Amino acid sequence: MSHPVASPTVRTAPAGIAPMGIAIVTPSLNRRDFLRQTMDWTLAADPGGLEYVVVDGGSSDGSLEIIRERAPQLAGYVSEPDGGLYDAINKGFARTRGEIMGWINAGDFLFPDSLAVVREIFETHPQIEWVTSRVLSFLDEKGRLVEQGVHQGIARDSFLAGEHLEGFSKGRSASFIQQESTFWRRSLWERAGGRLDTSLSLAADFELWHRFFQHALLWSVSAPLGAFRRHADQLSAVQRGEYLAQAESVLRRHGACPRGAVAQTLSVGLRRSLPRPLRSSATRLGLFQPAPLCSFDAGSQSWRLEWL
């Protein structure tokens, strides 16, 4: 599999300091072929110290054989009926202790250097509590990387106002948060409740991001981290309308109101196209909020924090 966007070279933790542990959970139900690839990709991304837990919902397609073959490389696995995707993820995280957390669904992909990049950023910048990639990456059904795009960052106020949820407000919407490219500190997870909301069958990820934003800014990283696989029978495609409705209910529950078409389109358009020298003026006028970025500086070979 070729990867047109390479991850930056990363450095190890300073001598005498143990690297941060990384807890990754994969939930799966009857996804044997997709599960095999995702497990191998995730294990290949291990920079050392990976706690990888697979939670199978009692599959009948031979998935357990795939898991057992890789069991020596896992921190643990479960194969039993559960309450759905988010119950499975909660169950998996409860079995981990790593300070860096994230989940990768069966079929999706982590870039080879992704976990090393995320760990270096968290170790270098203790003020950062969660990150996502600026690079939105997509696989086809065969697992080939077929599409990538770059977003302009995600500001807290913009997310909480519904700017990043398609159809919530009139006018254009901004980029979503790609779940497989998002990682956080366990301390943030615990402050935000330490669980995914299982009352939401589809949009518990969106609800978790909303809770995270109550406590911390989301830093968008210049490196590609994960990729989403598009296939015909995935829940996000088959039940897209229901996902959007659940996410909208999260926003409305917390008092968000849809914007008018002009205000929404202006905010999104300025974020995508306004030259940097003019952004501070646009911020003072209340036209849009700057977003925090974590970019790789080739000259210093380090991660630089900035606002866009």
Results as ranks from 00 to 15, higher is better:
W184G: 04
L165G: 02
G167C: 05
T198W: 03
S201Y: 07
I177P: 02
I177E: 03
K170N: 14
H151K: 11
G193R: 11
Q179V: 11
H164W: 00
A174H: 03
T182W: 03
L160C: 14
G162C: 08
A192M: 06
L165E: 01
I154P: 00
S187C: 14
E190K: 13
F183S: 03
D197I: 05
G194D: 12
S199D: 13
K170G: 15
S199N: 13
S169Q: 03
F176Y: 15
S158T: 13
W184N: 04
A155W: 00
A155F: 01
G193Y: 14
F159T: 01
F176E: 07
T182G: 09
H164L: 10
L188S: 05
S169K: 02
F176V: 13
E163F: 07
H151D: 03
F159S: 00
S175H: 13
F176M: 15
D157G: 04
F176Q: 08
H151P: 03
I154T: 01
L160F: 12
W184C: 09
E163Q: 14
S173P: 10
A155H: 01
R172N: 10
E180Q: 13
G153A: 06
L200I: 08
K170Q: 14
A155E: 02
G162Q: 02
G162R: 01
S181V: 13
S169I: 00
A192Y: 06
R191N: 14
T198G: 04
A155M: 02
G171F: 11
Q179N: 11
R172D: 12
A192W: 07
W189S: 03
R172C: 12
W184V: 08
S169V: 03
T182D: 14
R191F: 12
F168H: 03
L160N: 11
W189G: 01
L196P: 00
G162E: 01
S169T: 04
R185Y: 02
R172W: 05
A203M: 10
Q179K: 11
L165W: 04
H151A: 10
A192G: 07
V150Q: 10
V150F: 11
R195T: 09
L196E: 01
S175V: 14
S201L: 10
H164D: 06
S169P: 03
S158Y: 13
L160E: 11
H164K: 09
S173I: 09
Q152N: 14
A174M: 08
G167I: 02
E166Y: 12
V150I: 13
D197T: 07
T198I: 09
G171L: 07
S181Q: 10
E163W: 07
G171W: 09
E180C: 14
H164I: 09
